[in-house]
Design a protein around this nucleic acid. Structure first.
Length: 812
RNA sequence: GCCCGAGUGGUGGAAUGGCAGACACGCGGGACUCAAAAUCCCGUCCCGACAACGGGGUGAGGGUUCGACUCCCUCCUCGGGCACCA
């Protein structure tokens, strides 16, 4: 070590970071040897869609958080694979292209180039050798291949169903893309319902597995709950009400026990039986009502506060429990897309039915007596009640009446137990241009035929005018020379499917592709897939809980069942990070509150910015972005650097306090990083640096043995500076190839600790004691304290509580 | 309406049954400087004027416990999800 270095260089993040970016590239530090790795660890972050605006701090927060974890695992000796790609197909990219009047094929490479540059400046441990872009034919060839596999298996079907149409996007949307009846991309635009034939993936076939696997998946509770709610499983019964027309009406109910109170029925206005049931006299009003309901958009139809409307069909059905004839109405508060589109109305025990019954003067009958006398009988909806006015079931508790009445009705062929889900099949058709063409061909003779695998990819043709229109079909339907093809089966002239698939199909399998990008003859290599998947750690935002994360699970399950994957759940561990908001609101361009990372990184450096984002608050909670405290992080890194830059020869043993703190820090930082508690990991590193500074002997430097672990522990959070420190401490290889410092519990042990002395639960004193003293000794020493005696006033303790090495409580 | 999560100094937050406010920002004071910035040192929950010391204090109210920010009950506020879902 140079003995006389009076001036130590100051820390210049721009110089340090440029140096290490270059060095990492030259040394291929972040490239993972996928074939040779001994301890594979797949660390995944949600790939971005390359918007023209570039990365915002929310993206950086997400990526850095995942990167910190990946770097930590690498320091644990694992071969961490941290790939990235771009979700470049889809409406978001296309809408932007339309707005700036430039072709997306031209725009996307530009945006991607900018994203790459920004990502590289963040100091992420990304392996760029495996970059994917969903718009690359070498990628979407296999997106189309997945469609074909599902089509062959009967999991991709064409069916006519009510679908969500965004008049702004001019395409249908999946249920998951509709938020409160509005398009997720156009919050001001109300989604219309259209009855169209579309391609659906039968995700509902997998609903029970999607639900049940959550029992063993290691996922954030918040994400799990969102998926469970979205799936919306209800247990109940399907009940059959005979009608004079001979066609019975089937209803779903979660309360079959209340059937004796069903005094009328309601069908959704578009229910197919309405036409058959309506009497001559009522035809006029029923038609008028149906017309009005059909003209309404989802939002005006679904608002809960709206007054109930409806009309009588003139027809009656037979209540299978009472044998009574009850009137059949139609009303828009019954939705065609849930259950059977028809209900038995029990106004006595359902708030909506009661409101309707009052308005139209229908009979209200109480059939449940609440156990709690404080509750009203009419209008009671809970489970704590007893049957009344229900024939032989009177006196039975509701919970017992459910199976009893269901079984009784089943004997009469009037009902059976039934499960109902809110989840619908996934509509993947999009009447847009910027996506992978759905690889299907329509032949007049052969019907729907899949494109033969050897003809993949079906290339998206370059289109000058790719503007969507009102026609309900894709712009590709305007290109005759593209869609006119011979039928692959019979050779007769046929027609390509002109819709493209949903972007969420692209993203439902990108993580399967990453390890296998070197192969063009298979979507994912069996050997590499077995070695690297399922993903070990996936960190991302809950905005994808019911979209990407649900779809990816479904696609993996389907491919597993078809023999293409050795596992059915793609993400062994998922952690939801929090959301970074600005002034209490989600960042969005329309609000004008988007914070871009570039100037912060330019001013403070990536390390400071990374660490600052992680220090903001608990990673899994997120918070409001403000830059008030960023200088504190920079000051910390300056201090850490100057300690390293003035290191001298010496032994850790010569600094017992610092050495003890070191081992406490190794332990604490390790467990915090593992649990994604980045904010407290950082504060522990700060404490360590504070102790190191306080324990210095004048200007004398500290030994490497105390500073090398600091460099390593800084690695996940401030990777560039960590490398610089590591190099300065005399190492030639990357700090990320060093092992995480060993924790020695004995060295972390305090020689003396403070025992809190309480009298009647109030702190009255503290004792300096050696660890592990006995209860007797602790109590005796506590009683000898003058301050304690003041409060015990000579009384002997009735009871003493001793928490070893922490506290003594004397109860007098 | 239902289901999650959260409410702690001037601010971000820490402590998940045992010293409330770690760590950091900000602020006040001091050192260095002609001066400023940077840096360093001291202080910083509230009340009893200061110290010693005492009292109060984690959204509100109740409870369990020797002891509650932490567990239980009721309520309020904020954020998120679902929602005429039968």
């Amino acid at each position: 070590m140079p003995a006389e270095r009076t001036e130590i260089e100051t820390y210049d993040p721009q110089v340090v970071e440029a140096k290490w970016r270059r060095r990492w590239e030259e040394r291929r530090t972040n490239a993972t040897d996928l074939h040779g790795a001994e301890r594979p660890y797949y660390n995944l972050m949600m790939y971005p869609y390359p918007s023209a605006e570039g990365l915002h701090v929310g993206n950086v927060f997400a990526f850095v958080g995942a990167d910190v974890y990946g770097r930590y695992r690498r320091l644990q000796g694992e071969n961490v694979f941290e790939p990235i790609g771009f979700d470049a197909f889809g409406i978001h990219s296309e809408n932007y292209a339309l707005r700036v009047n430039t072709h997306p094929a031209e725009l996307i490479p530009r945006n991607i180039a900018r994203f790459r540059e920004q990502l590289q400046r963040c100091g992420l441990m990304l392996d760029w050798d495996h970059e994917v872009s969903t718009t690359d034919p070498r990628y979407y060839k296999w997106t189309q291949w997945i469609f074909l596999k599902l089509f062959d298996a009967g999991l991709a079907v064409r069916k006519k169903a009510p679908v969500n149409w965004c008049p702004e996007c001019k395409t249908v949307l999946a249920n998951e893309q509709v938020i409160d009846g509005h398009c997720e991309r156009h919050p001001g635009t109300v989604v219309h319902q259209r009855f169209l034939e579309q391609w659906f993936f039968k995700i509902t076939d997998y609903v029970e597995r999607l639900l049940q696997n959550h029992e063993w998946l290691d996922w954030s509770e918040s994400t799990r709950t969102m998926q469970v709610n979205w799936i919306g499983r209800s247990e109940g019964a399907e009940l059959v009400f005979e009608t004079p027309t001979g066609t019975p009406i089937t209803v779903f109910t979660t309360r079959p026990d209340t059937i004796f109170g069903a005094t009328y029925m309601v069908l959704a206005p578009e229910h197919p039986l309405v036409r058959k049931l309506t009497t001559q006299e009522q035809r006029q009003v029923v038609h008028e009502y149906q017309r009005l309901a059909a003209a309404m958009d989802i939002v005006s139809r679904r608002v809960g506060e709206k007054e109930k409307t409806g009309v009588f069909t003139g027809a009656y059905a037979r209540n299978p429990a009472t044998g009574e004839s009850i009137p059949i109405w139609i009303a828009d508060y019954v939705l065609m897309e849930y259950g059977t589109g028809a209900i038995m109305a029990v106004p006595g025990h359902d708030a909506r039915d009661l409101e309707f019954a009052h308005k139209f003067d229908l009979e209200v009958r109480q059939v449940v007596q609440p156990d709690d006398p404080a509750h009203e009988g009419i209008g009671f909806v809970g489970w704590d009640g007893t049957m009344i006015n229900s024939g032989q079931f009177d006196g039975m508790p509701c919970t017992e009446a459910v199976p009893a009445i269901t079984a009784w009705l089943e004997q009469q062929h009037a009902g059976k137990k039934q499960l109902q889900y809110r989840l619908h099949d996934w509509c993947i058709s999009r009447q847009r241009y910027w996506g992978p063409p759905i690889p299907a061909i329509y032949c007049d003779d052969c019907g729907v035929v899949g494109v033969p695998e050897q003809d993949l990819p079906v290339l998206l043709p370059p289109l000058e005018d790719f503007r969507p229109d009102e026609s309900g079909v894709s712009p590709l339907a305007r290109v005759e020379e593209w869609y006119k093809v011979p039928c692959p089966t019979c050779g007769k002239e046929a027609r390509r499917e002109t819709d493209v698939s949903d972007t969420f199909l692209d993203s439902a399998w990108y993580f399967l592709r990453y390890p296998s990008t070197e192969y063009d003859d298979r979507p994912f290599d069996q050997e590499l897939t077995e070695k690297w998947l399922p993903v070990n750690s996936y960190i991302g935002g809950n905005e994808h809980a019911v979209l990407h994360l649900m779809y990816s699970r479904f696609i993996s399950m389907a491919l597993h069942d078809l023999g293409h994957l050795p596992f059915e759940e793609p993400f062994a561990r998922f952690r939801a990070h929090g959301t970074i908001v600005k002034d209490g609101a989600k960042m969005s361009k329309s609000r004008g509150n988007v914070v871009v990372p570039d100037e912060y990184i330019g001013k403070w450096g990536a390390d400071t910015f990374r660490m600052y984002l992680m220090f903001l608050g608990p990673y899994q909670e997120g918070g409001d972005f403000r830059d008030e405290g960023i200088s504190g992080i920079r000051r910390f890194l300056d201090k850490a650097w100057s300690l390293v830059a003035s290191a001298e020869e010496g032994r850790a043993d010569d600094h017992p306090d610092a050495n003890r703190k070191l081992h406490q820090t190794i332990h604490g930082v390790g467990t915090d990083l593992e649990a994604l508690r980045y904010n407290t990991a950082i504060s522990k590193l700060m404490e360590y640096v504070n102790v190191l500074r306080a324990g210095r002997d004048g200007d004398a430097g500290l030994p490497g043995a105390l500073l090398e672990p600091l460099a390593i522990m800084l690695g996940p959070l401030a990777p560039h500076l960590a490398e610089e420190c590591w190099e300065r401490l005399g190492h030639r290889t990357s700090v990320f190839d060093a092992p995480w410092p060993a924790y020695d519990e004995a060295l972390a042990q305090e020689e003396q600790l403070e025992l809190v002395v309480q009298v009647n639960g109030k702190v009255r004193g503290r004792l300096r004691v050696a660890p592990g003293i006995s209860q007797e000794e602790a109590v005796a020493r506590a009683l000898a304290e003058e301050a304690v005696q003041r409060f015990t006033e000579g009384r002997q303790p009735r009871k003493t509580i001793y928490v070893p090495d922490r506290l003594v409580n004397l109860v007098v």
